[in-house]
Amino acid sequence: MSDATLLPLAGGPSAPARFTPFDLAVAGFLARYSGQTFASYQTDLRLYSQWCDSVGLDPLAAQRPHLELFARHLELERGNAPSTVHRRLSCLRMLYRTMHVDGLIDRNPAEYVKMPKVYFDETRMVGLERSEISALIATARASTPCDGAVVTMLALLGLRVLEACAVDIEDFQSTERGHRVLRLVGKGGKPATVPLPIPIARAMDRAAEGRTSGALLLRRDGTRMTRRSADRVVKRLARKAGITRTVHCHLLRHGYVTAALDAGIPLRDVQIMARHSDPRMTSRYDRARHNLDRHGNYVLAAYLGGAA
């Protein structure tokens, strides 16, 4: 399989004129995705294709032992971490499942492949402390209107950095049921409507500086802010605020979720705020869940105490 098959199917002159059955399966599979997911799966499948070529294996004839050997190749020869191996095998699982549904293969050889155990470091999910967030917001608002809006949108709305950079002034001028709202397209192309508390709306209005259209967050040259320029802004403001640890844009989103849980907002509501599709992702941010003082055994013992 050539690398051309792993390129986006745009129908342009670079699109391959012919497909082998496996080429078509891969191209059709990748066509279902976009953005970072597409790029990751494209890399995963290119590595798998190259490995199949190196061992003389037709991917359509692959069996479970072949995929187990590919996993060992990733682990031992490429030095991939368990989380990376897990993701790449998951990609193959989905590809072969699709091929099975399409009738290209009789069974999915990846269905029972042993997946490496991945232990998640939950300390990475804990964001900035409440005092650090307050200091960063105060420093940003004392800087420039754009700096204030960047930090406000990341720390108080929990926007992902690309979502914040993509906000146009027109996106937050409407109201819904009496609430001023921001309309955006989030991760995975999911549309979202986010209510704007008054201090947040004011910070965004100040950043607009009288403009009625176009990008809200601008760089010094007047062009739309990017992920990298936003990260530079956050790091500069964090140093100015006296925060000693390394701060990046997504850490502000972590702080947003952690602070919401610390404030006592129910997990389900925080899941909606963060726009997580899985509540297990939200629960990783709950640093109080390991607090023995609130362990359920005490509640149950008190409830059943009269029956003991």
Rank of each mutant, 00 (worst) to 15 (best):
D53T: 12
H276Q: 07
E163H: 01
R64C: 01
M125A: 09
V55Q: 06
T258Q: 00
L92V: 10
A207P: 03
A142M: 11
S277Y: 01
D171H: 14
A39V: 13
R141T: 09
R72K: 13
A230C: 15
L95G: 03
D58K: 07
L252F: 07
P199F: 12
T212A: 13
P13D: 15
I198N: 07
A274C: 02
R211E: 12
H73Q: 15
T20P: 07
R220I: 10
V194F: 09
D23K: 06
C91F: 01
L237V: 02
P65N: 03
G148P: 11
L252W: 08
R177I: 00
H276Y: 07
S83H: 06
V299Y: 04
L216I: 07
L7S: 11
H248F: 13
D102V: 00
A288V: 02
S213T: 15
V151D: 03
P16C: 04
G222D: 04
E163F: 06
T152F: 02
R224C: 03
L45S: 04
I133A: 12
I265L: 06
F29Y: 15
R177Y: 03
V26K: 11
N297T: 05
E176V: 14
Q42N: 08
A10W: 04
R206H: 06
L261T: 01
G56W: 05
I243D: 09
V185H: 11
V234K: 12
L104R: 11
L267Q: 02
E132P: 11
A17H: 07
E122G: 00
R253M: 08
G28I: 07
G148M: 12
L57Y: 03
C165T: 15
D262R: 02
D58N: 15
R183I: 13
A31T: 10
T139R: 12
G186Q: 14
A138W: 05
G28T: 08
G214T: 10
D44N: 14
M281A: 10
G148V: 11
V55W: 07
S2E: 10
I133L: 10
R202Q: 08
G255C: 12
A110N: 08
A155L: 15
G305E: 04
Y112I: 10
T246W: 02
N297E: 01
L217H: 01
I105F: 09
I265W: 00
S34E: 14
E75T: 15
R93Q: 12
Y33F: 14
L182A: 15
D171L: 05
C52H: 09
R253V: 06
L128F: 09
P59Y: 05
R245M: 03
S213K: 14
V161L: 11
L159P: 01
G296D: 13
L184M: 13
E163A: 12
A308M: 09
A208E: 07
C165P: 14
T139I: 01
V194I: 15
L7V: 02
G158I: 08
